[in-house]
Write a protein that binds this DNA or RNA. Sequence first.
DNA 1: TAAAATAATGCAACCGATTGTGTAAAGAAA
DNA 2: TTTCTTTACACAATCGGTTGCATTATTTTA
Lengths: 343, 343
Amino acid sequence: MEEHRHITIYDIAEKLNLATSTISRALKDHPSISDKTIKKVKKTAEEMGFVPNTLAAGLRGNKTKTIGVLIPTITQPFLSSLISGIEITARKSDYSVVIMQSHDSYNDEVNMARSLFKSRVSGVICSLAMETKNTSHFDQFSANNVPLVFVDRVPKGYNTFRVVIDNYAAAYKAVKHLIDQGCKRIAHITTGSEFGHLYNERKRGYIDAITEHGLTLDDNLIITLKTMTYEEGVRASNKLFDLKPIPDGLFAPGDLLAVSAVQTAKKRGIKVPEDFAVIGFNNDPISEIIEPNISTITHPAEKMGSAAASIIIDNIEKRREDEAKEITFLNTEVLIRESSKKL
Amino acid sequence: MEEHRHITIYDIAEKLNLATSTISRALKDHPSISDKTIKKVKKTAEEMGFVPNTLAAGLRGNKTKTIGVLIPTITQPFLSSLISGIEITARKSDYSVVIMQSHDSYNDEVNMARSLFKSRVSGVICSLAMETKNTSHFDQFSANNVPLVFVDRVPKGYNTFRVVIDNYAAAYKAVKHLIDQGCKRIAHITTGSEFGHLYNERKRGYIDAITEHGLTLDDNLIITLKTMTYEEGVRASNKLFDLKPIPDGLFAPGDLLAVSAVQTAKKRGIKVPEDFAVIGFNNDPISEIIEPNISTITHPAEKMGSAAASIIIDNIEKRREDEAKEITFLNTEVLIRESSKKL
DNA sequence: TAAAATAATGCAACCGATTGTGTAAAGAAA
DNA sequence: TTTCTTTACACAATCGGTTGCATTATTTTA
């Protein structure tokens, strides 16, 4: 295991009595280099164990073939699938993926954005931290022509690419499904977030579905949580089950919450779905394992990651015009399983 | 959103009538620069919006402050927690983390290792692909003094850092616990892997615990699976439940398998833990949500990631001697929950 | 066969920060 | 005041590919 210096194109050039420019071009099949030379150079490079130095190339060309990913956390099924999609797509075009977790902290997000910028990433994919209200820390990317794609948790009124689902429509579909199953008093769990936010959109979908189908909106059936943890879900569920006539349905904007509701119901002897139908959101792995397994809304995490990565790459390679920062909507579907199937 | 060229130390140097070397040193508080100059330089850099170019620094110093992570997939709770630990620790020392997924493919792993090497990562953390028998594709790192840490799925007889748990001991403890609960015919699910592999170590622990406590080893109680999916787990469980006297306990080397067994048991009217006690492995989130919740072995994923990252960083910053490529063992504990509590 | 056109390769600047060495300026000791 | 130290900064090479332009070799056309 002796340490040996990296082989460079200079070494190859010297050995073959050629110029480094020729080596550089030969290695990437430049048309102005003869086939004979190309073959010879590649063979020698191989023999000498040449490994191109990405840094040098990146410095010269000011592009790093690296995508920065800035998300709240990677230990959530949705987000880890998202990254998986990004990574797979990036890799196909030989891009690397660097990950940073904001842990939903605004300050961390700001610092990490800076850090990504410093490392000259070729593009950035971001799902905003919960705390983030202001997105000016992303201006550095736009100002320097670094493609930026927001995914899932996107800012409003910021002119960049966005890859999202239609949260309003998805929520509407979910609630509509419960109504179709005969539910009359449908509860909802949400989180206090400003207008336009994903959870707010879902809430809007819930409200509209209720009112547009002749049901009455009951504020007592809407529980607002600060954090969407399992424990909080249990608290919320208990609150709902303490109501005089308990609700007969629940639209939870996340599967973990749905699970907590189902389990709390079971503990209190409330039958799911007969007495209490539940539909979640995301199609997390757990939703199909729990018993009864949970109806949910599919959330194409991996596809979203893939789409985001494609936008970045196409934009860099200029296969796509970068005039319009369009929004990409991906499809969601109602996945009916046991927890909501009354009929 | 006009595009503006990046500000460099040359720009600062020109503005202040100083040499770039002075700027460079001033920015990092070099002792040979006067405080006055340092202050002036930093202020100007700030004003001009200077962002250091990591690439240039990396090229010059041949170090990138980047840790490459090469793992089978990130969508497994254990591995995403591992990455989380790596990222958090790396970030504290201002290191970036690039992720690649081998998807348990040997070829992908080889290519990705190359790719990481090309991008001159400062260190590599790897959990081996299932397919991987041969680790020569990691020689390039050792040969060039790039610290390499294997985590969890580590190769045998390869002189690098390793961060692992004692799989043998953990399995032994798990089975011992079942025995303590009164189990006599304990089943085990495993996968066909060579000697020294993690699953094999767990199997060894299982076998020794059985034999050393006066129980008889029964080959029919050991099911070997190709892949450790939920569906395969159901198949394995059904096989076990088809035996004349069914086993009265199961040590599953993963929580998903344990869950599949518990649920299959319930479907067949077998009571858990009364008729069939189950203990899993990893302490995946699902294990404490499922009902009955599953006893398991804690697997300190995030700590392992943290430890691995620390080894890399300490090694680079030479805070640690890099002579001995020691093995770091992290603790595991038996987490007793409902699925195994007979007493 | 000379001139023109094309192909193949070389030269050298460049990307931006780092750092060993050299030098001028300022202060201390003689 | 002169000499010796420090202190503070400048010079210039370096990391390793990349690329515009110049030059030489080869082939085609006149």
